[in-house]
Design a protein around this nucleic acid. Structure first.
Lengths: 194, 194
DNA sequence: ATGTAAATTATCAAATATGACAATAAATGT
DNA sequence: ACATTTATTGTCATATTTGATAATTTACAT
């Protein structure tokens, strides 16, 4: 009928490039100019596919949330398939393999800062954190089914904190030892249950 | 001889206002215009006292680092004066009293993101983190002098992570429960030593 | 009251960022 | 070949941000 649409691919390209910009410069520093040069597309093209700056940010937030939920969902599903030691295996995966890649982590941090002046996004991110927290609690429950729920929730908060922190500090470089120590702490924390 | 200088006060005012802007909008979003309206001073005045944008950022980084070192130093000194239970008292203070105020925390997060495109600042912040980590290790050593140093360092990384994380998520609002759970996790982690 | 150093205000030019839309080029089905 | 739809490029006006400096005012000491 007409020229084939590349909207899907372009949208993807643009959002990936925007992620990089946000990761490097923060939300307010991720200008459309930087996005254009990063993506190799003209600013007018960005506008054509994604609309104005605000719509772009909204798209980024949605992409981040769904991507994060998908990967955490996959992780939790995999752990559910295991016979035992799900909790320790979770720590293994979170801290060893670069589970969340660095740009995604930086995007998360940038969005959290952006939340300070955008309450709607703050609410989205809060439930995002809570969902992950609940997911971790569920995983702990697989291995430690007889422990009081309250303890599991406490430890979930702790593991989440240790993990989030080490990932957000990754950008400072030279964090291998800190990562190892953080992981050992997470293991130690979980082992208080057995 | 001449009109009395208010340089010290103005400098302070400006940096405090700049902190607020950086906390709300990130480093790149903290424009001189926003700073002007936040501080109630004219942009030309800001320039008069602080120089250009880059010098302002450098001043902010230095202010943040020294302030943070001072308050952590005071904390560590106080704990050193205690007879026993220094470790738990530290958790008490870090998690209960809003030890680091919210803007300082947000500034830290913003600077960490800024580090992604400014290696020099990344290096400053990395040693900043390491110093705090070592400080926590020393406090743990007060209470648990016979434990292997490696364990103490691991736990210091964990406590630091839990604490940093809960503070950086504070901006999302409604984080009281998460803070309580995080604190309990930190205590739990430390008690693996006794 | 007057000189003086500092504070404060007032402008200007340049660079950057954004929004809007026109104009052109390319690929597809018929 | 042609109509049609989409991709792509190009341009313009506007707003924002920054840097730089001149002009003015203020408070103090003598």
């Amino acid at each position: 009928m007409a020229r084939p649409s590349v909207k899907a691919e372009r949208t993807e390209e643009i959002l990936i490039a925007f992620e990089h910009c946000v990761a490097l410069y923060g939300v307010e520093g991720a200008t459309l100019e930087r996005l254009a040069s990063q993506s190799g597309l003209q600013r007018s093209l960005v506008r054509h596919y994604m609309g104005n700056r605000n719509e772009l940010i909204i798209a980024l937030v949605n992409r981040f949330l769904t991507q994060s939920r998908v990967s955490f969902g996959e992780l939790f599903n995999y752990l559910e398939s295991l016979e035992d030691d799900q909790a320790l295996k979770m720590v293994e995966m979170l801290f060893d393999t670069n589970y969340m890649n660095t740009t995604q982590t930086a995007v998360a941090s940038a969005l959290i800062i952006y939340s300070g002046s955008h309450l709607d996004i703050a609410n989205l991110l809060r439930t995002w954190v809570q969902d992950i927290e609940n997911g971790i609690t569920d995983v702990l429950k697989m291995t430690y089914e007889n422990e009081p729920n309250d303890d599991l929730q406490d430890i979930a908060a702790g593991v989440l904190g240790i993990y989030f922190n080490v990932d957000s500090l990754e950008v400072l470089g030279d964090m291998e030892e800190f990562r190892v120590r953080s992981k050992r702490s997470a293991v130690r924390l979980i082992k208080t249950l057995s």
